[in-house]
């Protein structure tokens, strides 16, 4: 009986809802270019590809980093953000258009930041770190003495365009963006939606764009409580006017179903367990009843046999 009980418990555990976690990954394929600018204006076009090795679709946001702002401005990347299905590829084009510059060697990094689209939206009241995978493609640019001399100069002045930090950081805010929304809500529930830039004040143009299953979109502030009135899969995007930063999906369920969704199996399991225990108790009762009746039967039999033995032992009255 004990073995059966353990098996039932194991069976129930199999169906217990367990949190799933997306796995992130990316591959970057391209060439590390070493460009020499001998004359301004200078234009170069290149390409690389991003491979989504995650087990889920991901949004990749492209950023450009270089030690100097004027050098960063030479680079344009297209598209600025791209959604790639699991195990899919996307080709990215970049253009370096330098109208003028100073003599020197510059390292430019094109950085692709990946965000899981179906990742956990909320974590409850627990600190969490969203781990982000990034890959970078390095382009080294050498502006020759002659090119600099004929343009802005051979020596870069120590002005405001000098790097703020020793290590170049992406100028794009996408690398620090977060969007905290639930993944599973019931219709009619008021839910807090929050988004922003970690460690920075959110730009005024930053907003959350909520798209309903019917295709209607609502631009909302970055901290807003919204009541979902339509079932289906909604999409929440934290976005700047020129590029989406983070995207998450929200499943809105009917009132009854929403409560069931998370713990349906647990409830069903609980009922099964109760049923099993009741059955187990009934069986035990039955067994006890049987044992009692058997014991009673035995007692009766033994008293009968005792009686008969007594009768046998007695001398029969004479005359019978």
């Amino acid at each position: 009986m004990n073995t059966r009980f353990i098996l039932v418990l194991l069976f129930l555990f199999l169906f217990m809802p367990c949190p799933s976690q997306a796995e992130m990954g990316m591959g970057i394929s391209g060439r590390t270019e070493a460009l020499v600018i001998e004359q301004f204006p200078y234009v170069y076009e290149g390409r690389f590809s991003i491979h989504n090795t995650s087990d889920t679709a991901c949004l990749y946001v492209l950023a450009v980093a270089s030690p100097y702002e004027d050098v960063t401005e030479w680079v344009a990347v297209s598209p600025a953000a791209v959604e790639i299905a699991s195990n899919g590829y996307a080709d990215i084009k970049y253009t370096i258009a330098a109208p003028g510059g100073y003599t020197g060697d510059y390292d430019i990094r094109i950085i692709a930041n990946g965000y899981a689209l179906s990742g956990e939206g909320t974590t409850g009241d627990r600190p969490v770190s969203y781990l982000q995978t990034s890959g970078s493609l390095r382009i080294s640019v050498n502006v020759t003495h002659n090119a600099g001399d004929a343009s802005l100069g051979t020596t870069r002045p120590h002005e405001a365009d000098a790097p703020a930090a020793e290590d170049p950081q992406p100028v794009d805010v996408g690398s620090q963006a977060y969007l905290d929304v639930p993944t599973d809500v019931s219709v009619g529930t008021a839910v807090r939606l929050r988004g922003g830039i970690i460690g920075h004040e959110a730009p005024a143009s930053l907003c959350i764009v909520l798209s309903s299953p019917m295709g209607e979109s609502y631009a909302l502030p970055t901290d807003y409580t919204y009541t979902f009135r339509e079932e289906g899969v909604w999409t929440a995007r934290l976005t700047l006017p020129d590029a989406p930063l983070v995207e998450r999906q929200i499943r809105v369920r009917p009132v009854r179903a929403a409560g069931m969704a998370g713990g349906a199996y647990a409830v069903a399991g609980g009922l099964l367990l109760l049923g099993f225990l009741a059955l187990h108790r009934e069986r035990k009762k039955g067994q006890k009843r049987r044992e009692k009746s058997e014991a009673r039967h035995q007692t009766t039999l033994s008293s009968i046999s005792l009686k008969s033995k007594t009768l046998e032992g007695r001398e029969m009255p004479k005359g019978l």
Binding site: Q21, E23, M24, M26, S29, V128, S129, L131
Partner: peptide, 15 residues
């Protein structure tokens, strides 16, 4: 082309 791949990183770390 050069290729660098990074896979199997969890998307969140609960602290």
């Amino acid at each position: 082309n050069d290729y660098i791949e990074w896979s199997g990183v969890p998307s969140t770390l609960e602290l």
